[in-house]
């Protein structure tokens, strides 16, 4: 059998090389499709921002303007709502409380999740897969199931209405999440790195802190972002475990409805202020976030 192709056949095919579309036409077509996707994306972003804009808009208005007429932007710009929040300790302490337990939770979680994720990514041990699955089920456990026992558990150990109580409670879903993300990042670091370090005489703790953690820096950054996110947005547990001393801002916001009606301006301003920490955090990790969102699993 001969594989040589007929020359005439090849010649005939070869004529297709210069197609009917001119380069200019093609460029136009590409540009048009690019503009179309820009437009769609822009449209989505605008629709997405609109509710947040509305909140911002209201937070800069007086209650009488909010309730009086429909205005697309503040006619009488006022910062009174914000000033009110920042001068009232029961308001701003809500932010301090939220920040405090979120920070504590991030610290505790990352400290215990790092070694555990390392164990999952490097070793097999009895029951490892089942343990991992059990962890993930905690990610899915609806907090509503646990509300009452939580209250009683923390009450009986004397932690009720402390920041650490909320921080510990949020470990329920944050530790599994952290292990899940970190395990993905760690598995993409070749095992040879570990072995080389041991041969070079590094002890495990020294290797872990000096070599391994710097290698998965971006993974840790992304993990912290997720920990922040889920601890910051969760309120059901935080509300149940606190009364006055450690109450999160989300709870304090409900106070805006009084007998004389709802103080819309303050509510909106408080809402805007809950968004700001998120913006800051996402700004800091923006360069790693694209990779990190796949949870190290692409």
């Amino acid at each position: 059998m001969s594989y040589k192709l007929e020359n005439s056949q090849r010649g005939e095919k070869y004529n297709t090389i210069f197609s009917k579309i001119s380069p200019a036409q093609r460029r136009n077509r590409n540009a048009r499709s690019r503009w179309r996707s820009r437009l769609l994306l822009g449209l989505y972003l605008v629709l997405m921002i609109l509710p947040i804009y509305w909140l911002l808009n209201m937070s800069l208005q007086t209650n009488s303007e909010i309730l009086g007429s429909m205005t697309l932007w503040p006619q009488n710009l006022t910062f009174d709502n914000y000033i009110g929040i920042f001068t009232n300790s029961s308001w701003y302490m809500g932010y301090v409380n939220s920040m405090l337990y979120v920070a504590m939770n991030m610290l505790i979680t990352i400290c215990v999740a790092l070694p555990a994720a390392y164990a999952f990514s490097r070793y097999t041990f009895i029951g490892d897969k089942h343990l991992f699955f059990w962890l993930l089920t905690n990610l899915m456990a609806p907090p509503a199931v646990f509300l009452l026992p939580y209250f009683q558990l923390y009450y009986s150990v004397g932690l009720f209405d402390t920041h650490i109580a909320v921080a510990l409670a949020h470990c329920l879903f944050n530790i599994p999440l952290a292990i899940w993300i970190l395990e993905g990042f760690m598995s993409s670091v070749p095992k040879e790195i570990d072995e080389t370090a041991y041969i070079d005489g590094y002890s495990f703790p020294r290797f872990f802190v000096k070599i391994f953690i710097p290698m998965i820096r971006s993974g840790i950054g992304v993990t912290l972002f997720f920990l922040f996110m889920f601890s910051w947005v969760e309120l059901l547990l935080a509300r149940t475990l606190t009364a006055t001393d450690a109450q999160p801002i989300g709870m304090i916001m409900t106070r805006t409805s009084t007998a004389s009606g709802i103080d819309w301006g303050t509510l909106a301003a408080a809402g805007v202020l809950t968004i700001i920490p998120g913006i800051l955090v996402v700004y800091f990790v923006r360069n790693h976030i694209a990779k990190g969102f796949a949870l190290g699993r692409t």
Binding site: L41, L45, M48, I49, P51, I52, W54, L55, M229, W232, V233, E234, L235, I249, G250, M253, T254, L267, G271, T274, I275, P277, G278, I279, V281, V282, Y283, R286, I289, A290
Partner: peptide
């Protein structure tokens, strides 16, 4: 775009309810 898109994810859930 990344920062804008992730924004709704970082809003406390009851605030999301309030916003809407």
């Amino acid at each position: 775009v990344l920062i804008l898109i992730t924004l709704p994810l970082l809003i406390p859930w009851n605030v999301v309810g309030s916003i809407w």
